[in-house]
């Protein structure tokens, strides 16, 4: 099995496209780092001792907005206002300035939005890893080895996961090193977490671990879907295109459905975002963390079963 995975790994890294993907990811981090460093980003809050006054003004204006047109505002906008108010109040009470030193951990935290980007590249690999063998015609020589088709497919899937994790690892390490070099290691500022109207402090490192692990779940689910389409339909463009489209639009579409129908909670995209249980509120009432985890496992198994059954039974002709 190990040599099969190594084979797949070699095939990924013998292609220049892979290096382009990694290059893009690192380039964006570098550019973002340079911007943060050399262009002082002015917040809405004065950068001096007056910050408490600034925050209070922000609270007042949002509260006014809520009072005036609270009923007309959509639920999620209202919620985001309440979140800002709560966090600002917490800062004033506990004397935590929003103008704390910007340091390596904050940079990693800011760069964690690029996990989606890593997910995108993971989908590209997952969508191509089986379908390309068909396009190249190499599938014929691959399947006439003394190895069952299930083992070959499994080795490809494990390679996709390894590739995804490597990208995340690279993103974490690179933004960490760059953050250290550019901003240094400052005092550890806590991350403020808002849930059910309550603000909690969380250490930055714990927050980063949360972000990386929860985002990986979404990446894995979408990559598994791309992998399934790739092995079932032998088309990498369909696999990649559809998965990326759903990656960006799936959540929105589910939101729209959720406004009218309750069954939206059974859709994959209502459940991929597990942050909803740690910060903010679930998309639909009645959804719990357990529910989402079960749904994700069910979807995962469905994708895998489809991929394996079709790949095993397929006649390799033409």
């Amino acid at each position: 099995m190990f040599s099969l995975i190594r084979n797949e790994w070699v095939k990924i890294f013998k292609r220049s496209g892979t290096y382009v993907m990694i290059g893009i990811l690192l380039f964006i981090v570098a550019v973002a780092g340079a911007f943060m460093k050399y262009q002082d980003v002015q917040g809405s809050v004065p950068p001096n001792e007056q910050w408490q006054k600034g925050l209070q003004m922000e609270i007042d204006s949002y509260q006014k907005e809520l009072e005036n047109s609270g009923d007309m505002l959509p639920e999620d906008v209202k919620e985001s206002y309440e979140k800002i108010i709560a966090i600002n109040e917490y800062r004033i009470e506990n004397n935590i300035s929003p103008n704390g030193d910007y340091e390596a951990l904050s940079f990693i935290s800011d760069m964690s939005s690029l996990i989606d980007f890593a997910g995108l590249f993971m989908i590209i690999i997952a969508g191509g890893i089986v379908a390309s063998e068909f396009n190249w015609g190499t599938i014929k020589l691959l399947l006439i080895r003394p190895i069952t088709r299930s083992k070959i497919l499994l080795s490809k899937y494990i390679t996709v996961l390894l590739f995804g994790f490597s990208l995340l690892f690279l993103l974490f390490i690179f933004s960490g090193i760059l953050g250290l070099v550019l901003f240094g290691l400052g005092g550890s500022e806590p991350y403020l977490l808002y849930q059910d109207g309550v603000v909690k402090e969380q250490s930055m490192i714990l927050h980063l671990i949360n972000v990386y692990s929860l985002s990986s779940i979404q990446n894995i689910m979408l990559a598994t879907m791309a992998f399934m389409i790739s092995s079932a339909f032998r088309s990498s463009s369909l696999a990649i295109g559809l998965s990326i489209f759903l990656m960006f639009a799936g959540g929105q579409i589910t939101h729209l459905i959720a406004m009218k129908y309750d069954w939206a909670k059974y859709s994959l995209f209502a459940n991929t975002d597990l942050f909803q249980y740690f910060e903010g509120t679930p998309m639909l009432p009645g959804m719990t963390l357990t529910f989402s985890v079960i749904m994700l496992i069910v979807y995962f198994l469905i994708f895998q079963i489809i991929a394996f059954i079709i790949f095993k039974k397929r006649d390799i002709a033409g």
Partner: peptide, 25 residues
């Protein structure tokens, strides 16, 4: 076996292709 044209991984060298198949037996 060779089934129809022997399609190989074009982005790898001949030796790397053989190494790839060698690892599978």
């Amino acid at each position: 076996a060779i089934v129809e044209n022997p399609e190989m991984y074009k982005f790898m060298s001949g030796y790397q292709n053989l190494l790839h198949y060698a690892k599978m037996s």
